[in-house]
Amino acid sequence: MTPEVERLERLAERLRAVDPYVPPPGAKIRGWNLVLAAVEQSTTARSRVHPTRRLVLATVAAAVLLVAGAVAASADSLPDSVFYPLKGVLENTRGALTFGASDQLAYRLDLARTRLTEAQAMFARHRVDLADQALSALDDQLNDAALVIQAEKQSDPAVGAAMENRLRQAVATHDAQLAGLQGQVTNPTALNAIMQARDRAAQALQTASKPAASTGKGNGTPGASPNGSGAPNSPNPTPKH
């Protein structure tokens, strides 16, 4: 062992012999009271958000995110999408929250436009069956719109006439699009579906122009069921699948 190491060893031994600083009893008691209070407060705060509750909150948050994502995904979904049924649910919900004849008409025409877009997309993908369903649903919406107009004509003929004009414009737009579509497709089934859709749209327009007493709401007449099913018009905006 070198002299330097010996000296440092002696110094280390001397350090080990130093008496430690000991806290005064008062300080220790004061410290304990403060620590205990802080620990109790911390425990209370932690218990407010129990692990089980945290798990539940996390699950709920995840579910909300999942639903929000599905809703967002369904908004523009097409009939061949897994999210499409959710789109119908959302449309029904929207319909239940729509009040007043004018808003009801706007709602029906909006859905009719959506169904037409879906039909065009399905024809483009050669899904004639789904396109046919979308066109049927389109006509259901137009027919329901016609019934809304009829009812409004009874209470306020001027407003009813204005609404009928809106329906007429919408049907004209749809008919022009359907005519264009008719010129593009060659499949006989598809052609037949388009022609039927145009006829039913025209019938819906006739329904809207008739006085309410001659048809009545949901009375099962051909005017109230232009799709030929014989069933009264369904208030359900969900497309038929």
């Binding site: 430690p20 600083y21 000991v22 806290p23 005064p24 300080a27 220790k28 004061r30 410290g31 304990w32 403060l34 620590v35 802080a38």
Partner: peptide, 28 residues
């Protein structure tokens, strides 16, 4: 641990008052 922490902090700072506060703060 309180005495040990107090001793450590006191040795570092050299002031009993500061050592007391810092030891309590450390334990908390």
């Amino acid at each position: 641990y309180f005495d040990r922490i107090y001793n450590y902090v006191y040795a570092r700072l050299g002031r009993a008052e500061d050592a007391e506060d810092l030891a309590i703060d450390t334990m908390t």
